[in-house]
Simulated assay, not measured.
Amino acid sequence: MSTSALDHRTTAYRPALAWFAALGSAWVFVLVTLGALTTTIGAGMAFSDWPLSNGSVNPHGWLVNPDMFAEHSHRLSGMIMGFITIALAVWVGRTDSRGWLRKLAWWALAIVIIQGVLGGKRVLLDSIDVPGFEMTLGQMLRIPHGILAHLYVCILFAIAAALSKRWIESKPQVEPTEPRLRQFARLATTLVIVQLVIAASMRHNNAGLAIPTFPHSTPAGDWLPQYWNYQVALNFAHRILAVILTFVLGWLVAAVWRDRASSSAVKNLSLAMICLLALQIALGISVIWTQRGVNYTTAHVTVGACVLATTFLLTWWLHRGVIEGEVETRFGEPSRASS
């Protein structure tokens, strides 16, 4: 990159770039939804080739065949997401003076590339058996593919937030956010990620109905399963962590509202997070009661990604002063924000 191009880098608010990043963050939920639909109806092998579908970017019959529509739409949305991420990484790299943000944009691009490779290998390696496992090698790759998507969502929202007008033009706070609140927010985000990792493992191990009743674990009304295996353990862990998350995220909302440094936008974001959690719990119950109804199961995955996005965004925003160097931390305690 030339010296003149470097001279034009700035931290100023750029509306076009900010809106592009925001729209890219919105598009990721289209990708997640189509991926969830593909998994829910078992359409991951609707096409046995990759990157083309039946040797074409417009395979015959894909608009009328449900399995082909789900899988090919997922591939097309992934391709669009890739182009968006390339443009975002180059745009941020050329115009933003914050080194950490430029690195974050390149990390987003790296993850998209890895995701594309994992998605392709999932198809191409589907026929290779792994001794001692019920899943083939290709089917195993579905799990890291789903887990890495969670990291990508977080990075994309981090970039979009850092490019927003509110982030760039907001003034340093005289009373920084309490360190304990930031630590608890990090814990909450970590627990959400762990829950989604368990969910991805459960979904791809066909364990969604390993415990087919709710709220009890057996038709006889027992709280604990009558027998245990890997699938039952995954399902039960998912339920227990959902209960823990309800209390943790509820406490986080209360703490944000008590914190004098929290803005109205941060407080409203915490409310959105807890409302999405309530919807997610309702959808999870509906998945069991409808025996994995397609609409409920797909929505459960999408809303789960929304819960992660809002929880991470809340945590990211609470760390804004630290990230931008406006609040220094010494021995775990923040100093006054610089003028």
Rank of each mutant, 00 (worst) to 15 (best):
V243C: 05
I244Y: 03
I244W: 04
L245R: 04
T246A: 15
T246W: 12
F247G: 15
V248F: 05
L249T: 13
W251C: 01
W251E: 02
W251L: 07
W251Q: 02
W251P: 00
L252A: 03
L252H: 03
V253E: 06
A254E: 04
W257L: 04
W257H: 14
R258V: 00
D259V: 01
D259R: 02
R260L: 02
R260E: 07
R260C: 02
A261I: 01
A261W: 00
S262V: 01
S262E: 02
V266F: 00
V266S: 06
V266D: 01
V266P: 00
K267F: 00
K267S: 04
N268M: 09
N268V: 03
L269Y: 03
S270D: 11
S270T: 14
L271T: 11
I274H: 08
L276C: 13
L277T: 15
L279Q: 02
L279F: 09
Q280V: 09
I281E: 10
L283I: 06
G284F: 05
I285P: 05
S286M: 12
S286V: 05
I288G: 09
I288Q: 10
T290G: 12
Q291H: 15
Q291D: 12
Q291G: 06
R292T: 09
R292Y: 04
G293S: 09
G293Y: 11
G293E: 10
V294Y: 03
V294W: 07
N295D: 10
Y296H: 05
Y296V: 05
T297K: 05
T297M: 08
T298C: 07
T298Q: 06
A299T: 08
H300M: 09
V301R: 02
V301N: 13
T302L: 14
T302E: 03
T302G: 15
V303W: 01
G304Y: 03
A305L: 04
C306F: 13
V307C: 09
V307I: 13
L308G: 03
L308W: 12
A309T: 01
T310L: 08
T310V: 08
T310C: 12
T310M: 09
T310S: 15
T311Y: 11
L313V: 06
L314Q: 12
L314G: 11
T315W: 08
W316A: 14
W317R: 15
W317N: 12
L318N: 07
L318E: 05
L318C: 08
L318F: 06
G321H: 01
G321T: 03
G321A: 01
V322S: 05
I323Q: 09
